[in-house]
Each structure stands twice: as structure tokens, then as C-alpha cells.
């Protein structure tokens, strides 16, 4: 156990009150320069890993986004195909040749209500 050398510091400066313990303790574990270097290196590695994890996660989102984009294009194409099919089914020629149209007859006379 070691103790710091006590230097005189006025109570006013310390803001300590009377009868309070004025002894300060210091950890017995001492870190040398190698340990410091290792710790800094570890911190850098951890930060680097966090960065890589985040960057990879962002790229993962890119793939997800690309997949969704492809789905959107595919659905857009399907929609477009259906619209074309719908337009073909309601085209004049199709309507004219339909069974309903074939059953229709020309009106014998047309009457108008006087305005």
C-alpha cells in the first residue's frame, strides 16, 4: 500500500470542511507504456470493428434495396402488361366481335323528347 506525499493545500482551496478525511488513495495497479500501447491498439481495433460492422450493415441494406427495386420493376412490368391486355380487351374490334355485340339489333326507329 502506498500513500501520496501530502502537500499543503489550504482548506479554502480544497473546499473541505473541518474533521473530514484528507487522505487520498491511489490504485496499486500501474500501467506501463507497453500496456498503454496494447490498450490503445485494442480500442482502435474495437472501433474499427464497429465501423466495419456498420458499413457491412449499410451494404446489406443496399442489397435489400436492390431486391425491392427489382420487385418494383417486375410489378411495374406486370401492371403495364395487364394495362395493355385490358386495353386490348376493350378495343373497338374486340367489342365489335364480342358475343354481346353480335346479339344486338339495329333500332327500328329513334324518338326524341322535345326540348
Amino acid at each position: 500500500m502506498s500513500q501520496n506525499t501530502n502537500y499543503y493545500v489550504s482548506r479554502r482551496q480544497q473546499n473541505w470542511s473541518r474533521n473530514q478525511n484528507t487522505t487520498r488513495f491511489q490504485s496499486a495497479v500501474k500501467l506501463g507504456p507497453v500496456a498503454h500501447t496494447v490498450l490503445v491498439a485494442l480500442m482502435i481495433i474495437v472501433l474499427g470493428l464497429i465501423y466495419v460492422t456498420q458499413a457491412t450493415r449499410t451494404t446489406g441494406y443496399d442489397y435489400e434495396a436492390q431486391k425491392i427495386d427489382n420487385q418494383i420493376s417486375s410489378y411495374a412490368e406486370q401492371k403495364s402488361e395487364l394495362e395493355v391486355e385490358s386495353a386490348r380487351l376493350t378495343a373497338l374490334e374486340t367489342v365489335k366481335n364480342s358475343n354481346v355485340a353480335k346479339e344486338m339489333t339495329t333500332p327500328a326507329s329513334t324518338q326524341y323528347v322535345n326540348e
Binding site: 412490368e77 403495364s80 402488361e81 394495362e83 395493355v84 386495353a87 376493350t90
Partner: peptide, 9 residues
């Protein structure tokens, strides 16, 4: 309006 010219992929 009815479609007369459309696009298809």
C-alpha cells in the same frame, strides 16, 4: 380518354 398508344417492355 382511352389509350390508343401504350408502352410495353
Amino acid at each position: 380518354p382511352v389509350k390508343l398508344v401504350m408502352n410495353e417492355t
